[in-house]
Computed example of a mutant assay.
Amino acid sequence: MPEIESLQKLAHLVTENEGLYVRWSRGPDWDLRKVSSTDDLTGVRLPGLSASALDVEDWWGRRPVNIWVARRLYDYCHLPRVKHPRTRPWLLRGCEAARGPDNEPLVKDVEPIAWVADHVITEARDIVADQPGPWGPIDRDHPSETW
């Protein structure tokens, strides 16, 4: 599978194509054997693979697409640490089958497109760090607040 080598290239793909998602896992060879995700809390098998939609929402307006894509990547950049060291992002096209317990799209009829290179995640982190508001990945193992 090819590899996307820059955030700019990924932003261009998102601009030119609807229905793209990014998934963090060990890859399509691993995922497409089972074609579903599992809810970590309950163990329930979900009707598709959990992924993050990359389509730019209308409310985003004419803001830079690279910031949109950087944030979508950055939200889950902690997963290699908490899931499996070989977890990495890959781009796919598919059909949304349902929503998962975190309201994430659950995708079926998956068509793998490309890996996202590690240095693209570094680019995404840098862009997020340059934004005016504080932001961190969605990391349940290191919550910023306790109950």
Results as ranks from 00 to 15, higher is better:
residue 12 H to A: 15
residue 120 V to C: 10
residue 35 V to A: 14
residue 109 D to G: 11
residue 141 D to R: 14
residue 9 K to H: 11
residue 8 Q to R: 09
residue 105 P to H: 03
residue 111 E to P: 06
residue 144 S to L: 12
residue 86 R to M: 14
residue 134 P to T: 12
residue 50 S to G: 13
residue 48 G to E: 06
residue 68 W to Q: 05
residue 92 L to Q: 10
residue 41 L to I: 14
residue 90 W to N: 00
residue 63 R to Y: 13
residue 129 A to H: 06
residue 106 L to P: 08
residue 92 L to E: 09
residue 136 G to R: 12
residue 11 A to M: 12
residue 75 D to V: 12
residue 6 S to I: 06
residue 134 P to N: 07
residue 59 W to N: 02
residue 56 V to G: 03
residue 86 R to F: 14
residue 121 I to H: 02
residue 60 W to S: 11
residue 80 P to S: 05
residue 100 G to D: 04
residue 81 R to K: 11
residue 114 A to F: 06
residue 127 I to T: 04
residue 123 E to Q: 12
residue 83 K to L: 10
residue 118 D to N: 11
residue 46 L to F: 06
residue 50 S to V: 08
residue 62 R to L: 08
residue 69 V to I: 07
residue 116 V to I: 06
residue 28 P to M: 01
residue 16 E to S: 05
residue 74 Y to R: 05
residue 131 Q to M: 12
residue 73 L to W: 04
residue 43 G to W: 00
residue 33 R to N: 12
residue 119 H to K: 07
residue 83 K to H: 15
residue 86 R to V: 12
residue 95 C to P: 03
residue 15 T to I: 14
residue 141 D to M: 15
residue 43 G to M: 01
residue 109 D to H: 12
residue 11 A to W: 13
residue 45 R to V: 13
residue 11 A to L: 15
residue 112 P to M: 01
residue 46 L to C: 10
residue 114 A to M: 10
residue 81 R to Y: 10
residue 38 T to Q: 08
residue 108 K to A: 11
residue 65 V to S: 08
residue 83 K to C: 12
residue 54 L to I: 06
residue 145 E to G: 02
residue 39 D to V: 14
residue 143 P to I: 04
residue 131 Q to F: 00
residue 101 P to Q: 05
residue 3 E to P: 09
residue 31 D to M: 05
residue 24 W to C: 02
residue 135 W to A: 09
residue 138 I to W: 05
residue 74 Y to Q: 00
residue 57 E to G: 02
residue 72 R to F: 04
residue 113 I to N: 07
residue 23 R to H: 12
residue 129 A to P: 02
residue 123 E to M: 03
residue 12 H to I: 13
residue 29 D to I: 15
residue 106 L to W: 05
residue 72 R to G: 02
residue 14 V to M: 02
residue 145 E to M: 01
residue 74 Y to E: 03
